[in-house]
Write a protein that binds this DNA or RNA. Sequence first.
DNA 1: CGTCACCTTGACAAAGGTCAATCTAGGTGG
DNA 2: CCACCTAGATTGACCTTTGTCAAGGTGACG
Lengths: 252, 252
Amino acid sequence: MIKHQLLNKDSVYCNTCVLGHICVPQGLNAQDAARLNELVKERIRIPKGTLFFKAGDRLTALYGIRSGSMKLQLENESGHMQITGFVFAGEIIGLDALTENVHVSNAIAMEDTEVCVIRTSDLTYLSKEIPALAHRVTRLMSQEISRSHSMVLSLGAMRSEQRLAAFLINLSQRFTCLGYSGSEYVLRMSREEIGNYLGLTLETVSRLLSRFAKEGLIRIHQREVRILDFNGLQTLIQNENMHRTDLRRALA
Amino acid sequence: MIKHQLLNKDSVYCNTCVLGHICVPQGLNAQDAARLNELVKERIRIPKGTLFFKAGDRLTALYGIRSGSMKLQLENESGHMQITGFVFAGEIIGLDALTENVHVSNAIAMEDTEVCVIRTSDLTYLSKEIPALAHRVTRLMSQEISRSHSMVLSLGAMRSEQRLAAFLINLSQRFTCLGYSGSEYVLRMSREEIGNYLGLTLETVSRLLSRFAKEGLIRIHQREVRILDFNGLQTLIQNENMHRTDLRRALA
DNA sequence: CGTCACCTTGACAAAGGTCAATCTAGGTGG
DNA sequence: CCACCTAGATTGACCTTTGTCAAGGTGACG
């Protein structure tokens, strides 16, 4: 099921990879980027639905998504699974555990997925040789903190419709970055997964999507989304009567 | 108001600091820890209520809380302030911005607070000399990611009473680490701040605290908390009928 | 002793969760 | 190729949790 494959001389390497502008090479000069070819010696194919690693597993590598998508989920003491993120091509997973060397979350493929293996031993070694790489890794961790913070902001401060609108726009931006259409895309995850991620039930997600469609903000058919009114969604996130104590204070 | 003070030979340095087991020196051997004395050359006193740094400020240093406490808050596009964390003695702030060199959140003193200044330039230099220090910093970032993830878990998966119970227990654990009582402590923050942090209103927080008191789980008088039934709180977090779709699935 | 910031409590409203009954599309076996 | 099956999505009716608004209460401090 999970297939490992070593790279050979005909393979695509980091310095020629189309994802270079997003993935590890981002921000490195051509010379440094060329040396990254030593970093990835192997790729892994993960079929849809496979648990790729789970919390508690020893971390031996970071993984760059080459194609496909995965979800990351955390389990709490009482057994609830909370999806903490969806990752697409060009994004790196495993950073959260980089220092303890133990994964903190589960990673599950949402579709057939291929990842590039970046062994931590190679990473440590190369980071010493290429300061820019060490810096890049710290930046990736920093980004992960920001991403996580904005998730807290979203869950703590936004109402359901705002969270979902923000989610759709976020996907749009990420797909655009990857060179796909930002206004028309296919959701890789179920309503239940979206709901779990956003702290909502699948019914609420479904109702909101229907409502957005009725209001002309989007068109939706199953998992195919077309964003009709970008500004409308944006306005929804920002203006729509603020949540909780804000209004009172804003008027004071 | 904000007072800087340089350390002199009589000052407490990192290797003799009572917070060594929590703060930067944690996990370093005695020899390396001794070298940390070069790291902190200055402390800053911040009066209660002062905005110490704000999002967008250039980051020139990390700060270790020596005494007092601060809150970290993020502002979103529509102006909502979301508290993303409370920090106490021994904890480090500024990590989220380490690579972009720009703070992403505001830091405000909740009481008179003293922080140790760790200039990033010194940190970079010393990290090269002491690999264990570089590792320690990465680990601190890793911890920040985990902390943030558990916040997402809490906001996304727990109901209000569970969040508040978890909050009280978390504070208890942190105070215990600091050598204070874990069963009796003073909240440094208002009901509104707690509510904001947990994604609730101040009224809900107040009501829940009253309810916990009525149920004999805690005693509360203003900001003085005494935890009477640790297990009761723990049980509340774990068992109390799970949230959302979980039950259905658990039975299936 | 008055003021102010903060907290508590009640009555009510709204958001969102729960349960249940379809609906739909894609996949499978006859 | 069709009929059936199943997982996922939709929708409605209803109920719980939590937010909103408003009216006091409490304690610290000048």
